[in-house]
């Protein structure tokens, strides 16, 4: 299995390092050829407006959308969560997302940078224990549709959710040196999803 990390903008190098620590093949993805070469995709933290803008400019946007819709496993942190959401609130009028995850996400829901925080976070059973979660101008999930499971909440809003093939977190595990979320994505989301396809 080869996991791509969308490398248009944001902290994609940190995601690459986390995935390498999980023992998978990793490659940055900026072009369609690079996308075609990976089995799963991680969408990093960054500015969701900028990433969406660049993806459209370089004509990789529709391709990512199509791949996700047809079952490519993907994980998004923060901006990545926004980009995986079917619907977003508090965004510029014409901001598009790749979608695929039946959730409504509110951008910058926890506030501006002075409100950014870190906190211990508890996950539902089966998930790997307490985690130090870093929230930076973070979004939260306002509503979840059928087939979306809430894995963790903060201030009574979901901040980690998954479907069969997609995982999204409001926070940034790539900044903490704790690779359990990436390992969870690789072992519990991506591998089972890809096995089913084959």
């Amino acid at each position: 299995m080869k996991v791509g990390v969308l490398g248009l903008q944001g902290d994609f190098r940190e995601h690459i390092n986390s995935l390498i620590a999980c023992g998978v093949d990793v490659a940055p993805v900026r072009r369609i050829e690079e996308l075609n070469d990976v089995d799963a995709l991680v969408i990093p933290g960054g500015e969701s407006t900028t990433i969406a803008h660049l993806a459209q400019t370089f004509e990789i946007f529709d391709e990512i959308k199509t791949r996700i819709a047809s079952g490519m496993p993907a994980y998004g942190s923060c901006a990545g969560m926004i980009l995986l959401a079917d619907q977003i609130l508090d965004a510029p009028k014409d901001q598009k997302t790749f979608g695929g995850l039946d959730i409504v996400v509110r951008r910058n829901a926890f506030g501006r940078q002075v409100d950014s925080f870190e906190s211990d976070l508890e996950f539902k059973d089966g998930f790997p224990g307490l985690l130090k979660a870093v929230f930076i101008r973070a979004p939260w999930v306002e509503k979840t549709g059928a087939g979306v499971e809430v894995l963790a909440s903060m201030q009574s809003h979901p901040v980690a959710v998954r479907s069969k093939t997609l995982l999204a977190t409001s926070f940034h595990p790539e900044l903490t040196g704790d690779h359990r979320i990436h390992q969870y994505f690789v072992d519990q989301v991506a591998r089972p999803a890809l096995k089913k396809v084959q």
Binding site: G10, D115, F117, E118, L121, I136
Partner: peptide, 22 residues
């Protein structure tokens, strides 16, 4: 489960999100 604002990780992390940008 205390929420702590203004930590080094939160401040430096914000800049990490701007990387590769203008």
């Amino acid at each position: 489960m205390a929420e702590v604002t203004g930590t080094g990780r939160v401040k430096r992390g914000m800049a990490e999100m701007l990387k590769g940008g203008v």
